[in-house]
Amino acid sequence: MHGLINKAVQTFLRDNYGAALWRHVVQEAGLDPNGFEAMMHYDDDVTERVLQAAMGALDKPRVVLLEDIGAYLARVEPLRRLLRFGGADYWEFLASLDELPGRTRMALPDLEVPRLSVNAANGGRFTFEVEGPLPGVSAVMAGLLRAMADDYGALALIEPSETADGRELVQVALLETDYAEGRSFDLAMPGAVEAHHA
């Protein structure tokens, strides 16, 4: 797993639940005390151990934890901005999600992100099939898409689900594109982007 993803999980846990919880996870998962480096690669099972340790310590079901992580990601400012480049409004953003791996590759050729394909788009209803590096990736995407709906000021119902044969889905019912004000997105980067530190 790319260090950026592990680092994001680390930052999520530390920002939301404090350094003590993170130290506990480090110990439980047998990590380097310094945590993750964003520009390195780690074995996939390291990420899984972190998730298991966090689920245990926080007493949260996997889906809830992963949704929270997804929502957190969309609020990390450099990432939020990069996601907003997907489209001028939430509908366009949803329609551009199948470009996510391509966009990511432009920035970081070695970063694998979830692959979303629109299975059905009917008016304001989208069904995405999500393929990703860890089980429950649809929950991460559901959390992220919910946070982005807020960011755009759109009103949408978003739920992770799965098909009978276990493929992961995210279902989006877009009720209103211009429901609320939304957060501003100025194309011009406000100053230089600071590195996101834990």
């Binding site: 964003a38 920035a107 980067m189 590195a195």
Partner: peptide
């Protein structure tokens, strides 16, 4: 103060802006 609406969809301006930010973020890391 340009916005996405100021560019033709055929223009790669948005991709260029996106890349510039992505590059800045990666360089920051």
């Amino acid at each position: 103060g340009l916005t996405e609406a100021d560019f033709s969809p055929c223009d790669l301006a948005m991709e260029l802006l996106y890349l510039q930010e992505a590059k800045a973020a990666v360089l920051g890391e």
